[in-house]
Design a protein around this nucleic acid. Structure first.
Length: 226
DNA sequence: TAGGCCATCTGGTCCT
DNA sequence: AGGACCAGATGGCCTA
């Protein structure tokens, strides 16, 4: 679990998430995609990937056209070997195959690489629309944390929408809201609407897991006490 | 140094 | 047949 995820869960554990949620429509979080310049850039393409794709960034940026890696043989296996996932066995087994098979294999690899890049782009897009501490100095959310937070966010928004509908329905009945919120509205008061309110007695871990069924092991950093 | 997270390769399966 | 999708394996990078 990285620093940004800690920040995220800190924010979830108090009412910051509420604020972010309420302000979300008015401001851009301005968090660039992980591949972009200025991002933490934890995962640059490996030398092998770089060689294979013939690019230094997303392989599908220009329509995902096949690059020349599929055409050439294994003259550059050594440089590929420097990258991840290319051990001696793979190199030798692939090198033994006929050129046609090798070409096909490389084509499949490139396609799979593009597919994964598309998936990562989608995840970056998701990171850009969920509220958490977006900052160039903060490492981006991991994939699993992104998905789990997105799920929680959707659930929270759905619940907030439902509460809003009930409130509108209540107001349409000719009632007026005074402060504090009448007892009748208690079920959709703030603490009820936002599951991660700091007023909750549950620990952070419980809060993180109760709404999503998330394994608590994914929130090991949640060490705040009830 | 161990563990977490990731990119990539690979072979299998399913679909068009 | 070719492409999409998936899961396993592998190794690199980073952090506690």
């Amino acid at each position: 679990m990285n620093a940004s995820e800690e920040n995220l869960l800190k924010s979830i554990s108090n009412d910051t998430l509420l604020d972010l949620t309420q302000r979300y429509g008015q401001s851009s979080f301005g968090f660039g995609a992980g591949h972009g310049a200025g991002s933490p850039g934890r995962y640059p393409l490996t030398p092998a990937a770089d060689f294979l794709s013939g690019q230094t960034a997303k392989s599908n940026e220009s329509g995902g056209e096949q690059t020349s890696e599929d055409d050439d043989g294994f003259d550059h296996l050594d440089s590929r070997k420097r990258g991840s996932g290319f051990d001696d066995d793979k190199l030798s087994s692939l090198a033994k195959k006929p050129k046609e098979q090798r070409s096909l294999r490389l084509s499949i690899n490139a396609r799979e690489r593009r597919r994964m890049h598309d998936l990562n782009d989608a995840l970056d897009g998701l990171r850009g629309v969920i509220p958490y501490a977006h900052s160039p100095s903060v490492r981006k959310l991991s994939k699993i944390a992104t998905l789990l937070l997105a799920k929680n966010y959707i659930l929270m928004q759905a619940q907030a929408l439902e509460e809003m509908r009930r409130l509108v329905s209540y107001l349409n009945q000719g009632q007026t809201i005074t402060s504090p919120i009448p007892t009748a509205l208690a079920p959709f008061g703030q603490t009820a609407v936002y599951p991660f309110s700091s007023t909750a007695l549950a620990s952070c871990v419980e809060k993180c897991t109760s709404y999503s069924g998330t394994p608590s092991s994914l929130f090991k950093h949640c060490n705040d006490k009830p």
